[in-house]
Structures are given as C-alpha cells and as structure tokens.
Design a binder for these strands. Structure first.
Lengths: 339, 339
DNA sequence: GTTGTGAATGAAAGCGCTTTCATTGTCAAT
DNA sequence: ATTGACAATGAAAGCGCTTTCATTCACAAC
C-alpha cells in the first residue's frame, strides 16, 4: 500500500547509479547537465521524495533548525516565530519548535533531545540557561543564537535588546510626565520580566521615588483579566499610586479596563504604560503608552544569522541589540493635576 | 569532538549484543530483569541517546505527530496548540508543526513532506483540503484527525464544531435583543469565516432582516485595528447598522474602541458580538458578547483520539462536535431604543 | 533419560540514503 | 602516439538502529 519510491527506483528508471541520483539532489554541479535533466524528470514523474531519516543517518547531519521558546501561546513569541518563519520559508531548513514552559530543567531535556539529532542550528530563548544547558550548547557542533535579550556572555550569537534599559526608559518617561507614585505590575516573573523590574527600580531610585510596596507581582501568567486583578490588589494597598508600569500589554489593557470600571481617569488620575506595543495599544481608548520591541525583526535576524553561519558565510556582528522605542500615547499624558 | 555514544557502545559496555539493548529500549518485557537493569544502568552512565534517524530508518516508522495549522500567530490556534501540548507532553510522541498559511497548495506540499517521513499520526485543520490532499490523507497509513470544524465526510477522525450553527446562534441572539440592522464584519475569509457568514446570513434571512450591503469583508487578516477600520467602512455606507457580528474577537474589540471614539453608545446604538470568546472579552467595557468555542479542549481531544488510534485502542466516537456557548454580555444588551 | 517448550539472547540482514574511492572516458599538452 | 588532468560515473561501504531468525538453555512432562 505504501509503495514509497526509493532513490534506487529513480536510479533504475533513469539508468544510472544511486550515487548519481544522490548527487543530483545534493551537489547537482557534479553531474553533467544531460543526465541531470533526465534524472530530475524521472524524479518528477515518479514523485520521488527523499526519506529524511535515511538522509540524516547517512550524512550525519540534518537540515533541522531547533527552536526553544518558553511558550507557544504568547503574542510575543508568536511574533518572533512569524519572523523566523518568514525567513526559513524559502530556505532548505526545517523548523522544529519545542516549548520549555519557562523551565530550565525542561529546556535542558529538550536540548539533549535536539542535540541528539545533530541539528543544523539552534535558537534558544534568553540568557539564563542552566549551567548544564550552557555546557551542552557550548560543545554543540552547530551554530546557536540566543534571542530576546542581549547580555555579556553569548554562547555563540545573540539578538535581542536590553530589558533593563527599556523598562528604565518607560519608567523615566512616567516620571517625566509628572507621575510620582509609579507602581510595577508583573506577571509570571520570568528572567526578562525580572530585568524589567530592575530597570523600573533603578529609574525610580534615581528619581528618589522608589517604594518597594508599589511592586505587585504574581507567578501566574499574564492575561488581560489578571491586569484587572493586579490593579485591584494595588489599589487595596492604598498607596496613592498614580501610575502603573506593566510587565506587558495584556496587563496594561486590563488596568485600563479596570480603571474605567472604577471610574479612575486615565491618564489624569492614573498613568498607564505597557510593554511590547501590541497592535491594539494604539487603538484603545485612551491609546496606551508602551515600549515597542522588534519581535518579528528579532526572529528574522536570528534565523538569518543562523543560516549564514550554517552555510559558512561570515556573520559580521554576532551580537545584535535591536533596541526599543518608547511609544508615548494618551495613557501616560498627564494633564495638569486636578487640584 | 562529537563522540556520540552509540547503541553498540552500550552493548559492549554491558557485555550484551546490540539486539538486547535495543530490546530494552523498545520491548523491555522481552529482556530478563537482571540484564535489563544492568543495561539501563549503563545507558544512564554513558548518557546514551538513541539516534532518531537511525531508529526511524530501521523501524520504518517514527514517533512524530505532524500538525498542520493555517497560522501559528493566532490566538485561536495558540489555544488549540496548548491543548495538544498538554496531552502530548507525557506521551512518547514528538510534535511537529507546520504552517499552511491558509493555502491549500502549501498544505498539500507540507502533507507530502510529512507523509514522506511516515508520521505516527497527523492533525490537519478544517475540512476544505484540496482533492489531492484528501487523496494523500486517505491513503496515508497513519491515523488522522481534522480539527476546528465538523462535517459530513471525515477523512478519518474529526473534532470541531459547526461554524454555521454557532454564527447562526449569535446572530439570532442579536435579533432577539431587538437589533434590526445587523452587519457582518469579516476578515481573512478563510473557509470557517465563510461558514460563519453563512450562519449569519441564514439567521437574518429567517428573520427577514437580511441585507447584503451590511456585509463588510476583507482578505486582510484580523487585528483590533482592522476592526476599527471595518466599522468605519460600514458607517460610511450609511445603512443605519445598529449591530455588528464580528468574524472574531479582535475585530469586535476594535469595533468597541471605534464606537467609543465616535461616541456611539454600545450597546444602545450599536450592539457588538464577537467570536471565540477570548479571555479579554469578559473584562472589556462594556463586556463583549461572544461565542465561546472550546479550543483547548479541541486540541486535547484531537491528540488523545490520535494517540488512542496509534496505539490501537478503540476510539468510540471518531467524530466529535464540541459545540459552542453563546456568552451574552453587555455589548449586546440593548436597552429600550432611544425614541 | 529423553523430549518438548518457552524464555532469553545473539548474529546478521537490512532500512534508504551519502560519500569515498576507483574507474572510465575525453581532451589538451607533450 | 603518449601522457596527464579532469570531469563524470559507478561500486560499495557504511550511518546506527530494529527485527527476524536461529540458537542456547532451563525446566517441566513423560
């Protein structure tokens, strides 16, 4: 039933050896044009498809690029994936994703699985791998890109941005707008969120406005609903918060909704700033200030660098900082304080 | 450098043949307990990992479950994937995703690629495969689940719901609330969207309220911003629309934002209904009526059925209709019409 | 004691490719 | 004519597993 056409069938039909057919597929320049054409025709006619397992086994390498991300179901990574996809699309490489679920241990296991199949390259998220993972990656025989963040000690290549600096900028913006009791709302608290908290803290310390009690975090993963809840938690503390810097845009949107519900004027009584600048931030009412990050570009750059390295093209800058852009909008545009 | 431990190394170290080691891995019950323990210890000690290519080649099958979805970057599929993941997690199967990008042609190609590696099973989206794809799937030697929709002619198994019926219910709800000029806003117009449009049309025809001009669609993919724009387009037509049924929740949220901006009262002057019931619908202001679909459950059920079939366990119901639930909220709760 | 049975193991033949190495043929240079 | 070099091709040896088949051994039944 499953009468797969094999390479040898093609060879037989074309009246050549298997070696020649294989060469047509791998190194066509080694085969004379006439024979090449004939073989290609036969391949087409027979609908031949190489068995990837056999190919991988024989050549001791694969065309698989492994991608380890903490979550598939997260807008941020979805955008990165889109970028990766758009480039990988017209490359000979197959993408294979795995979900570390924000766990270093899981990451380590997946890494072992991936490396055991000798991938052509690997993209991993962040810079907080476990020592064991780092060791695995360091001795891996394929190029590797770390994405989402930049840091001092790249395993191989890196493309990301500084979460500390971007959060610092956002917080400083709120300070600049005249807010004085700026809270931090954080969900999930993965390493990148933590660094954003750092940037926030630093900015407020510099302004002499830091108050630890204004930090509200939860290990739960972020949703719009959670934004509503966290704002509620913050308000319960009665700390006179007059602005919130949110971990991400989901929370910020929730905060906005909750403010509306509680009749807290935004931005007059409560400034709001999100992170990532999801598309909807610009069209909310009021529009929501956010830190734009270049997620799709991050995906594109990372896989492009990876492929360049796989194909032995020189990569000029192995560590790329994509920066960020503060998108100041209505939600942080404080009008003269209501006396 | 890449001194991979092979099966034969394990065999040598344990003083047994390769066959026995292989058996410990595949059919441990065939090996005596003493030997089994010893071999497992050696495997652990040497850090042995099977080469998946060799395994696949030798056994003429893989433990790969292929998943074909139209988009990775879409909340709806993200939820489905989460469901699939949560089940596949503790199974021996590897998931492999591919993105058909809403193209039948692309789907066909990916199918060929997948089938060429003899996957253990396949999950495909929707019921509108090309004839060629259907043929490929029909003669595939692995179980297959179609997800997202139910239909009359399953290739193998199916889990989804009726887009026609759910859209019909939503539209009927708006009619029941007293809206009379109900518009349809549709983005991307993939087959499922088209069927929702059908359900909408049917419901309005039944109520004698159908007006083709109230249908506004675009091939662009849906975003919140697009919801704003489509509402703008609708209003320009000056058809006295008093409600919109949106293709999905993104559009609905955009409509809500745009209404706020234009000072159109929701739900009094404009009823709004979305589709999918994303988490944020419940916390928007006003909260947005939507059709809840069971996306995560869809993922879970589909992969569970698939695995059952792969492992030769009987699947009682090969076609599962998960239904839907109309979540009537503020955005469609019309107060007495302003005279 | 002999035979039969079944459990445990090993030998060896692939799985479908890639790649090295050898061979052949062609053509330019001598 | 000879030689050398090179391009084009084929033969064949794996790649690291799985699996069939044969073998061995222990033990129960006769």
């Amino acid at each position: 039933m499953d009468a797969r056409v094999r390479l040898s069938d093609v060879a037989k039909a074309a009246g050549v050896s298997s070696a020649t057919v294989s060469r047509v597929l791998r190194r066509p320049e080694l085969v004379s044009p006439g024979v090449r054409e004939r073989i290609l025709a036969v391949i087409e006619e027979l609908g031949y498809f190489a068995n990837p397992a056999a190919r991988a086994l024989a050549s001791a390498r694969t065309n698989v690029i492994g991608i380890l991300i903490p979550s598939l179901t997260n807008n941020v990574f979805a955008d990165v994936l889109r970028g990766i996809y758009s480039v990988a699309q017209d490359s000979p490489y197959d993408l294979q994703f795995a979900n570390t679920r924000y766990s270093n241990l899981e990451e380590e296991n997946l890494l072992r699985v991936f490396l055991s199949q000798k991938p052509a390259g690997l993209i991993v998220t962040g810079i907080d791998q476990s020592p064991a993972s780092r060791a695995l990656l360091k001795q891996a025989s394929c190029p590797i890109v770390q994405i989402m963040e930049t840091g001092d000690d790249p395993i191989d290549m890196m493309v990301g941005f500084s979460h500390v600096r971007s959060a610092h900028a956002a917080t400083a913006h709120l300070v600049g707008q005249g807010y004085r009791r700026i809270a931090f709302l954080g969900a999930r608290m993965d390493p990148r969120t933590r660094r954003r908290l750092q940037g926030y803290s630093r900015a407020l310390e510099e302004a002499g406005l830091f108050d630890e009690r204004l930090i509200v975090t939860t290990p739960r993963s972020s949703t719009v609903t959670l934004g509503c809840e966290l704002l509620g938690l913050l308000l319960e503390k009665e700390l006179n918060a007059d602005a919130v810097f949110c971990n991400n845009d989901d929370l910020a949107l929730g905060v906005l909704f909750e403010c509306q519900r509680r009749r807290i004027a935004t931005p007059a009584e409560m400034g709001v700033c999100g992170f990532n600048d999801l598309e909807m931030m610009a069209v909310a009412n009021p529009s929501i200030t956010s830190v734009r990050t270049f997620r799709q570009e991050m995906g594109e750059r990372s896989i492009r660098m990876l492929i360049d390295r796989i194909e032995d093209r020189p990569v000029k800058a192995p560590v790329v900082d994509l920066g960020f852009e503060l998108m100041a909008r209505q939600s942080s545009q404080r009008r003269p304080p209501p006396l």
